[in-house]
């Protein structure tokens, strides 16, 4: 067996050198071919060393990887992810980025979300909505920009009032303050919750108290509410205007998931008109 290992190691070294040489001269075709061969050799080496079967269930390199469709296992995991995200967003009460959603999931629901699980969520939800509109009690959907396109990297809940999902110039800040207040209100004994609140509090004037000690939720709420009062009026006005525009210009799908481009807006408007 060790002979075989030695031989594999030599081959792996040779292949690696080949790949790097090819990459240096940007010969991507050769590099890709060699890389494939290399992965094969490395898998063989792993299995020989660790006694793992050569094409186990963890095998991600082969063509039968995750794209092969949704097994039952994946389906159930998807539901869990979806629910966890819904819980977190409901707690926050405002559109949020995956990073914050993951942190809230950890701190308050003992969840183990990873942000890469959230990347395709919006697309999956849109597909599901298109297949059977309003078939689910809620959808995880987009927040909409002033062009009514989906805002980059934000998730929202379909059952919220439309204005809450609109992103005016002040909205990112307003939403952050809203989220900070929500987190402060829910603060529990979990050190992860305290850490999250500390991180948020230090970015609110008067909210932090140095870097040490658990944050004082009352103080964070007060500070965040104080700043919120400065922005609230204009932000509410901006959002309402946008929401009106969205209602009049967008069809159901686009209202939830956003219009991809200007031309989409036009098409959606027409679709709506035709319905």
């Amino acid at each position: 067996m060790s002979d075989r290992l030695d031989e594999l190691e030599r081959r792996i070294d040779g292949l690696r050198a080949g790949v790097r040489k090819a990459m240096r001269v940007r010969d991507t075709v050769t590099a890709r071919a060699l890389r494939a061969e290399l992965r094969g050799a490395e898998r063989a080496w792993d299995s020989l060393v660790g006694g793992v079967p050569e094409s186990g269930p963890d095998d991600q390199g082969g063509p039968t990887g995750r794209d092969a469709g949704s097994s039952r296992g994946e389906e159930s995991r998807l539901v869990t992810v979806r629910e966890q995200v819904h819980q977190a967003l409901t707690l926050l009460g405002a559109p949020a980025q995956p990073r914050l959603i993951v942190a809230v999931g950890e701190a308050f629901f003992g969840g183990a979300l990873r942000s890469n699980q959230l990347t395709s969520l919006r697309r999956d939800e849109e597909r599901s909505f298109r297949a059977s509109p309003y078939g689910r009690p809620y959808y995880l959907c987009a927040a909409l920009t002033d062009r009514l396109s989906p805002a980059r990297g934000l998730l929202a809940v379909s059952t919220w009032p439309l204005a809450r999902r609109m992103v005016g110039p002040l909205s990112p800040r307003v939403d952050f303050l809203t989220c900070a207040i929500a987190v402060a209100r829910q603060l529990n004994d979990d050190p992860r919750a305290a850490r999250l609140l500390t991180r948020m509090a230090r970015n609110i004037p008067g909210g932090g108290q140095g870097d040490l000690g658990p944050p004082d939720p009352g103080r964070v709420i007060e500070a965040a509410a104080g700043e919120l009062a400065v922005h609230a009026e204009r932000d509410t006005r901006d959002r309402d205007t946008l929401a009106k525009r969205a209602t009049s210009q967008l069809g159901d799908t686009a209202r939830l998931f956003g219009a991809a481009t200007l031309s989409t807006v036009a098409r959606d408007t027409i679709t709506k008109g035709g319905r």
């Binding site: 790949v19 790097r20 990459m23 240096r24 992965r39 490395e42 792993d46 660790g50």
Partner: peptide, 26 residues
């Protein structure tokens, strides 16, 4: 950087401690 991209990153992703160790030994 070439080592990082072609050897180390895949080794770390594979989760195989031996592979990472061997790559760095090299």
């Amino acid at each position: 950087p070439g080592f990082d991209a072609e050897v180390l990153a895949p080794a770390i992703e594979s989760g195989s401690a031996e592979r990472v160790a061997e790559a760095l030994r090299g």
